[in-house]
Design a protein around this nucleic acid. Structure first.
Lengths: 341, 341
DNA sequence: GTGAAAGCGCTAACAA
DNA sequence: TTGTTAGCGCTTTCAC
């Protein structure tokens, strides 16, 4: 038995086979719990694995089949909603033998797609992608080879699964809440570059649409006002500062999500301004007494877990596409109140 | 030319070679910008790559050499300090050709080590690990083969690099601030299971040590009180509730980090209690007017970027170990005030 | 400047 | 039940 493991610094399946006095195939079978291994052999092989500190290389396995790796693409770690989704996804994976690998998407429109590619280049067995901007056709091309679950996408493909919240309902509830409080000058703080457009079938696109629809229904078309900010609390803060210093100050701001709402609230509280704010998601800090943000709660953890479960189902053989919608719930807190007289 | 790409669903280097009418080796050279390729050939090969939508498989490359992948292990995405570190690390990587892959560590003592292993199994070219509980010897064994930068570790190995903050100074400053305000009943809310022990050379271990030292120096040994909570705001909240309802209520709480401090603040604000709170990190929400948390600021983004730079240096050939300490700075905000009379 | 061929570590089909 | 063997896609000498 040549101690190649010491020589090359990393034991291979051959080293284990030598040490146990069996063939490589036998070792491979033990590793995979494959059929047809005697208890004696299993024992000997396991002992050799232990003593050599052997770990199979994922790359070599990938050459033949699966990597036992699930990829997830996340657009913005600064937003704790995604963090919760991630947490849910991760929990659904414990005990399955799959390992989660996260590819971060830099800010920028194409970066989500890039991260997705990076995952695919590494031959993940399946992938959950959180709202990257990718056209349906290339997504379907990908999904034909690798199971894909899209998070926060409102289209219904035959090839990939989707998990999303009922944003129409969420935004409607929030708007009606603000209108019932008596607000008329409601600004919508939406995601996206200044002057850029929001894709229609995304959560933010739908929220924007509903904002417009509800303003119209309330006869407030002339008060309609949409301000855009890039992702992140900071950008929302700056946009809000500008808005508050503008000459037609709103009495309420409907933010595209809580991360933005928190930024808006920062500007408002700094100025001791009397402007209501509402968001989407119900991230953990939203319920903090110092923040107390009214929001449309999305069950992020559940949604992440469900997305991962759907992926596991695919991996087990499901072939028809599945699309799941989660219901949001309105959570009213101190950040929304009637407008000042 | 057989269109194997359609047949197998994924173009290989052979398909590209066929399409361009050259050898596999030629394609490989073009891919790697290797020496000895005529402009004409480069052109033809690139055209073929384009038209076949070819992407090299990382696994196959891994069999021969590097994966152009950097791994980072992160213990808790719920803590936005780590999120900032991640952001810094990621920025340092843009434009280098390396792709970042994140392995999440589940909660639990051994999980950081497990995530690290998962990364190693996938043959990352280098790894940044954020405070996993791993003994120095196995870390050194790993570092001998794969460059490793440890984040938040205060030991100095000859084999791996470290990046940490001067926690002794940070904790000292915070304690002196509280003492100068006149607090005597200061509880330390530390990380860790109830009754568990904090490792000495970790940030939390050092903070605990300094808490004790400063209490002793102020002649307050009898008031020393250490409460433990698991990671996360929730656990800190619960521990604080208990502490506030206890019969010797503290006038100030020194939390192990901001995530805990936020949880403590939640309990305090809910009860409209007059207890000061201080933390470590200066996560984004700490400066929010609704929170206004006194803290020892750690430059997380810079630290993450530096950690990644150190890794890149190793990848470029540096062989001596490097250890870097960042200086924290005390940020006093509204959450600390003199004790009630 | 270009191509042929060996081999990285593993799995799975087949033979024994 | 166990072992032999042919690749998976890529890089890298080494001939030409």
């Amino acid at each position: 038995m040549s101690d190649a493991s010491t020589a090359r610094g990393h034991a291979t399946i051959q080293d284990v086979a030598d040490a146990a006095g069996v063939s490589r195939a036998a070792v491979s079978k033990v590793l995979r719990n494959a059929y047809g291994v005697s208890p004696t052999m299993r024992q000997r092989v396991n002992a050799a694995i232990e003593s050599l500190d052997y770990r199979p290389r994922v790359a070599a396995r990938a050459m033949r089949g699966s990597t036992y790796t699930i990829g997830i693409e996340i657009p913005d770690f600064g937003n704790s909603f995604f963090t919760r989704v991630l947490f849910g996804a991760q929990s659904a994976l414990t005990g399955t033998g799959y390992q989660l690998m996260i590819a971060p998407a830099d800010p920028g429109p194409q970066e989500g797609a890039r991260a997705l590619e990076a995952l695919l280049d590494r031959q993940v067995d399946g992938v959950v992608a959180v709202s990257p901007i990718v056209d349906q056709s290339s997504l379907e091309r990908i999904a034909r080879r690798t199971p894909v679950v899209m998070f926060g996408r409102h289209d219904e493909s035959d090839f990939y699964d989707t998990v999303a919240a009922d944003d129409e309902r969420g935004a409607g509830e929030l708007m009606r809440h603000l209108l019932e409080l008596g607000h008329t000058r409601i600004t919508h703080l939406s995601i996206g570059e200044l002057g850029g457009s929001v894709e229609r079938r995304t959560p933010h696109g739908i929220r924007l649409e509903m904002y417009r629809k509800e303003m119209a229904r309330a006869g407030l078309v002339t008060h309609e006002r949409v301000v855009r900010a890039a992702e992140g609390e900071e950008a929302a803060y700056l946009a809000t500062v500008e808005e508050l210093d503008g000459r037609e100050r709103p009495t309420a701001i409907l933010a595209g999500h809580d991360a933005h709402a928190i930024g808006a609230l920062r500007a408002i509280m700094e100025r001791e301004s009397d402007v209501s704010v509402a968001g989407f998601d119900d991230i953990p800090i939203a319920s903090h007494p110092g923040i107390s943000l009214t929001t449309s709660r999305q069950p992020g953890e559940e949604m992440g877990a469900r997305a991962m479960d759907m992926l596991l189902e695919r991996l087990k053989g499901r072939t028809e596409a599945a699309h799941e919608i989660f219901e949001p719930s309105l959570v009213v807190r101190g950040s929304t109140k009637p407008p000042p007289p």
